[in-house]
């Protein structure tokens, strides 16, 4: 930081230069974020039509909200169901990506190749392609059933015969069935965790091995605490990603309302949904930041 040395004028000049640097962003945040945000909230209470060269807004009160959430009970349920499934996937993706990052951070032959493969999902994966991938002709011809590649019906039967409770069976088979999704959605997260692992000074590991700590202890006492900033970033990233993903039903509903020109309804649905996501992120952030460990404050 260049510190002001010759009194106030330099400080002021510095400040103005700084504002100059961020000025495009200031214009952007007003016109492409704050104004749209306010007008979306306004659209919730109106009937929107296109006039010549402008939007015609007719105030209708709570009509849109009533329509979307009281007359049509599906929307509320859809958001809630989607919330639960997204939380579930987020947790699974985070656990998997920490595990995968730990694995490919170790030294072994062919590590460069494996790392290159792990970067594949970042570059080629979009929700659309994932769906094409899962429509698998090969698997269909081999097992003579339509569906995804890895079916866990045999596992499910075995577990039920073992007398495990229904909940455990659904959880495990759900995980197995979605493993393809998880691996293909965890690309960025793995990369970020890997960056986090590389940033941990090796001296800490040397000390712990001299002190006789086991690998398990080293992970929980050194690796995990130092990864917590990355964990927060990844959690927020994963939540946002899962809520804007191609196969998200709420998003599809917003788009289809939009194409039918039901702008008021679309606004209600998207604002409520955003509020839910925002609250979730807020809660997660507050919870996690209490445990976060930063080396330098």
């Amino acid at each position: 930081m260049t510190k002001p040395r010759k009194g106030l004028s330099l400080t002021t000049r510095q400040g103005l230069t700084g504002i100059g640097f961020i000025s495009p962003w200031i214009v952007g945040i007003i016109f492409f974020f704050l104004v749209p945000l306010c007008s979306t909230i306004r659209y919730m209470f109106g009937d929107i039509k296109f006039g010549s060269g402008r939007v015609i807004f007719k105030y209708v009160g709570l009509e849109n909200i009533k329509e979307m959430f009281f007359r049509n009970p599906d929307n509320g349920r859809m958001i809630l169901e989607n919330l639960w499934s997204s939380i579930g996937t987020t947790v699974l993706i985070l656990i998997f990506s920490i595990f995968a990052a730990l694995l490919i951070n170790q030294k072994f032959h062919g590590r460069a190749l494996v790392r290159a493969l792990f970067a594949l999902p970042i570059i080629v994966s979009s929700g659309v392609l994932l769906q094409v991938f899962k429509q698998d002709l090969f698997a269909q011809t081999m097992t003579a059933e339509a569906g995804s590649i890895f079916q866990s019906s045999a596992l499910e039967a075995a577990m039920i015969n073992m007398g495990l409770s229904n909940k455990i069976v659904t959880f495990v088979t759900g995980f197995v069935n979605s493993i393809m999704d998880i691996i293909w959605k965890a690309g960025v997260q793995i990369l970020l965790f890997l960056a986090g692992l590389q940033a941990i000074p090796t001296s800490l590991y040397e000390v712990s091995s001299v002190e006789g700590a086991t690998a398990w202890q080293t992970f929980w006492k050194i690796t995990f605490p130092l990864l917590t900033p990355y964990l927060i970033l990844n959690t927020i990233y994963t939540i946002i990603d899962s809520f804007t993903f191609y196969d998200n039903p709420v998003m599809a509903e917003v788009i289809s309302l939009f194409r039918d020109m039901k702008y008021g309804w679309a606004s209600v649905l998207s604002v409520v949904y955003s509020l839910v996501v925002f609250l979730l992120i807020g809660i997660v952030f507050l919870l996690l930041s209490r445990f976060a460990y930063y080396t330098e404050k």
């Binding site: 804007t244 998207s270 996501v277």
Partner: peptide, 28 residues
């Protein structure tokens, strides 16, 4: 690298643009 009034508030707006899902503003 620069100090100016309201920087803290402005930067928290940057964070807000990361956290607020795109659905909220896409209609408008």
């Amino acid at each position: 690298r620069f100090r100016f009034k309201g920087k803290g508030i402005l930067f928290s707006l940057v964070i807000l643009t990361i956290i607020i899902p795109p659905h909220a503003i896409i209609n408008s």
